[in-house]
Design a protein around this nucleic acid. Structure first.
Length: 271
DNA sequence: TTCCATGTTCCGCA
DNA sequence: TTGCGGAACATGGA
């Protein structure tokens, strides 16, 4: 589930488990996840050092190595972290494992190998090179900044939300949830949205992110802990809309399957 | 067996 | 230039 809320909770998990411990050994278990560096480079950058702090930008997680370069992790479609003591608890799709001096291990687990791990020297430069827009949950992305991002933009609102170069962190699942909360059809043209609707969309985005993080995004219990009026647990064709009891529909939008409630999210809005 | 999946990138086309 | 649809990548579940 690695979109912004999930990665934010992975960050907090790493903060609570893997910081300030000497890394004795690094196991690169599948080199396909390496991005622009060899396993040797990554291993050398980490071994004998400790992780001193974390940062998240969109779906990218960074862990500073002795306040110097950073270990960058991107989780693709299936990644997560796992901290454990006994190696027999090492998860099946562990691709990169840090072995700490305290005997514990931190695994970067990624079934589908779409994720990435790298050593990043300069965070700002990396964000620029990857052409990432501002983080969707960042404090300095206020409503006015959000208005400016969407100004002059064409195309569908769902595409805009998922465009990492416009705003970083939203993917297929949470963009659906945000549009559901904002009562916007996924295919609504961005240039048809007036300031008030964009303001509503902004508030929906921030609230969905905050509530999803607080509800344990990235963990098994998310669906149980989300408020009852959230679409996520009903994100299936023909399921019942949690708000109006209409039927959830699936349509293709910008190459992905978008789930929405036609009754709550009509394409043409009267404002 | 076929289709589809929470992501990204590249290509051709409008 | 911008945006869109499709394909590709790798793996596994329905």
């Amino acid at each position: 589930m690695p979109e912004l809320p999930d990665v934010e909770n992975f960050k907090r998990y790493l903060d609570a488990t893997g910081l300030h411990q000497r890394i004795e050994n690094v196991a690169v278990l599948n080199a396909k996840i390496l991005h622009g560096c060899s396993g040797e480079t990554l291993s050398q950058a980490l071994t004998g050092h400790e992780l001193t702090g974390t940062h998240r930008h969109g779906k990218h997680l960074f862990a500073a190595i002795d306040d110097g370069p950073r270990l960058m992790l991107h989780f693709g479609m299936t990644g997560r972290l796992a901290y454990f003591k006994d190696l027999k608890d090492d998860p099946e799709h562990d691709r990169l494992r840090l072995d700490f001096a305290n005997g514990y291990h931190l695994a970067y687990v990624n079934q589908r190998l779409f994720g990435q791990a790298a050593i990043v020297e300069d965070l700002a430069q990396f964000v620029a090179e990857q052409e990432l827009g501002p983080d969707a949950f960042a404090n300095d992305l206020d409503e006015e900044a959000f208005q400016k991002l969407l100004a002059g933009r064409r195309g569908q609102v769902k595409s805009a939300l998922m465009d990492q170069s416009l705003i970083a962190g939203l993917g297929n699942v949470y963009s659906d949830e945000i549009l559901f909360k904002a009562h916007l059809h996924p295919k609504t043209p961005v240039n048809s949205l007036d300031r008030n609707v964009i303001a509503k969309l902004y508030r929906a985005m921030r609230e969905v992110l905050r509530v999803s993080i607080d509800s344990g995004a990235g963990s098994e219990e998310l669906f149980e802990r989300l408020p009852d009026d959230y679409l996520l647990p009903h994100r299936e064709e023909g399921d019942k809309c949690p708000v109006c009891d209409g039927e959830v529909q699936a349509i293709k939008a910008s190459g992905r399957t978008a789930y929405y409630c036609p009754a709550c999210q009509p394409l043409e809005r009267e404002k």
